[in-house]
Design a protein around this nucleic acid. Structure first.
Lengths: 224, 224, 224, 224
DNA sequence: CATGAATGAGTCTTCATTCAT
DNA sequence: TATGAATGAAGACTCATTCAT
């Protein structure tokens, strides 16, 4: 998507719509929503400015739809990663490390950083964006991951009582270190460092939730 | 600071400067940098628009200085929290929970969310802001916390080999859950939930780094 | 052109461009470049301010193009006057007086004064304007006049050796008195006075360059 | 005067006033009246901005007084040149050439060009400036020159009937070529070229007004 | 439907001028 | 009187949006 800046004029109508969306996300991500003019988006998409209005009606809708589309793509990638968390019968650690690494790669993707930047920047301005991303994207991934962990617990491979709490811990251990290490998206993490973070997170996670260890989280039922 | 929107006209020159900075941060945080006019900042600070330019020379400098000032305040609060991590001789858990809770409170402070929003939003636009906040604020707190943990390890109270890695884990466990729970700053966490998160994080941390447990992190020396 | 201040909204695109140019020259001439706002030019042209920017990109370009256009018009008028200097076979004096009077009328035209005012005022600011006017306008007229005088000399009607020097003298005698008499454009010269100046200049010129009189200018080849 | 840009802080009150006037003329001449801020004048004069207002009350007065002062200096120089036009008994030509050259030098002085630029630029804006310069400066010089020519005519050295007309011709021949040659003040005339112009003008003048030649100007009494 | 052209509202910035010390 | 600070009015320029073709 970040490569859609210059496109050969698309022929179909839907192709034009897609080109505009892609250009919009790329430009907004590069310079920020307010700093990007509709002209620039139109130019990057290879259409006239008025065409953007014909398709989306206004700049705000354009942002909303561009963010929604991007969030959907990101969610799909995350879900694909989670779906690799299957019990192969062997050691769990390499499987978890693989999934962890893939989730980290999703998190560190350029578009992913751009999406978070746009969200943070415009949250105060467009609060309903939160709904889209929180409910449609983040929670779906969390739920899918919780499902898989619950299944592994049922199978006796992990000592998990509260899958939601376990997911929260695993996610925190995976993504917590990334903001600082990737300097909020301005530095590209080398693959080696990603693997280290994944390994460290999975190691801690396994020590916390070893099979047969029912000590789990100490709090009573979580209040959420 | 978020209450300084309407101020009785301050008398000294420095007082005016401070009023402008406070107003700028509050207004930028509320509506975003690009969406906020210098007029609005000036009005909120109770000065004329030109006075803002006399003091700061332009809108961008205003943002820079407002962010720097806010980051300094946030850093001071964080450091104060870290400094409460002293070995009282008794059980470590309540001390860690107290410090953890305070760090969470810092993280969940309105100004803190506002600061992160502004940073995320303008990072692409003003990359040097990262230096200020990353080096002057985040790393300083991390280092201070690592120092304290190292001291506790030396005293045999924690089984820590690599203090930096331990800090990374503790921070992740403490702040990782907050973005989703606080809905990126649009929901105010109840005190009870903060305590829960702190307790859960400290519990996991203590289980990972129990005294005498030298298993610690599995990787060799971290590559950063 | 100085009457184009209020125009019925022109329909074509070029018509709008011309209207803006005319309005710009009139307004700049009336109040000076710096004292005239783009709003005023736009209002006088009957278009929106942004339209001015769509066409010319900025205030400075607007001035440049307005001056260029005006200089072209003035040059055309001057050249038309010069072209009337043809050898009718009869007495040369009335022909020269007619041409001289026309040149004086060009010089004393309101737009002509305005053009000189703008040029003088902005020369330090926009030095390349000199090129436009000096080369494209003044020198073209001088050359055309020199050509005609040379032809008359060849025909034995005037005793001219160096046509450039002769033109310099004729121009000086014609326009030299005008600045003071017209009070630098703030006073409109009566037709009678124009005729007097023309007659006096031509009389002196004819006495200096009577046919058969080869005394001419005393210097050797001019050093320019 | 054009060297007064940086001044050691003057001590007396009048010295300060003079420094401000000199700085004002220099700055106005360099960048134009509207483009020059009062700050810049104050800085160039080495005083505070408010001091300028204490002395002159406003920017417009500052321009008026600076122009007046400069015009007085220019007039003095011109009058000094004219006063050298005395009958030495010998050939008139070298004397006239000397005076003519000096007048040309006055005309081509940097301050002189700057003065004309400012006048032209602000004439529409401040019409009373014309009075100052036209009456106090130009006409005084013309009258002084007419007086001298009349005296030479009375002495039988020149064939002049109407001294005003003769002055008009002499002035035109002297200064007419200068605008184009000096490119409206943007090119500095070499001394050789000044001498050429002076010689050519005087030669023409002497041929027009040779002693005993009473043909003079052909018109009836001039209508001014 | 796609587009080039036009626009009105809004923003940053400057500057002549005044005031308190 | 001289000055540093403050200000209100004004101006250049931009941009999201609409209209005529």
């Amino acid at each position: 998507m970040s490569a859609a800046t210059t496109t050969a004029a698309p022929r179909g109508r839907m192709a034009k719509r897609q080109a505009i969306l892609a250009a919009a996300f790329a430009e907004f991500a590069a310079r920020g929503y307010a700093q990007t003019g509709v002209d620039e988006v139109a130019a990057a998409a290879g259409v006239a400015k008025a065409t953007v209005y014909n398709h989306f009606g206004g700049k705000e809708t354009l942002l909303r739809e561009a963010i929604t589309a991007s969030a959907e793509q990101a969610t799909a990638k995350n879900l694909a990663a989670v779906e690799r968390l299957v019990d192969t019968g062997g050691d769990l650690r390499p499987t978890l490390e693989d999934v962890g690494l893939r989730l980290i790669q999703c998190y560190c993707d350029d578009d992913s950083w751009a999406l978070r930047r746009l969200l943070y920047a415009e949250l105060a301005h467009l609060p309903d964006l939160l709904e889209i991303v929180q409910v449609q994207a983040a929670e779906r991934v969390q739920r899918a991951l919780a499902d898989r962990l619950a299944r592994l617990a049922l199978a006796g491979r992990l000592g998990i009582t509260d899958p939601d709490a376990a997911v929260e811990r695993l996610s925190s251990l995976l993504t917590g270190p990334l903001e600082a290490r990737a300097r909020w998206g301005t530095r590209r993490l080398p693959a080696k460092e990603m693997r280290e973070v994944a390994a460290a997170a999975v190691d801690a996670f396994l020590r916390l939730y070893a099979a047969g260890d029912e000590s789990g989280p100490p709090q009573p039922a979580r209040s959420r």
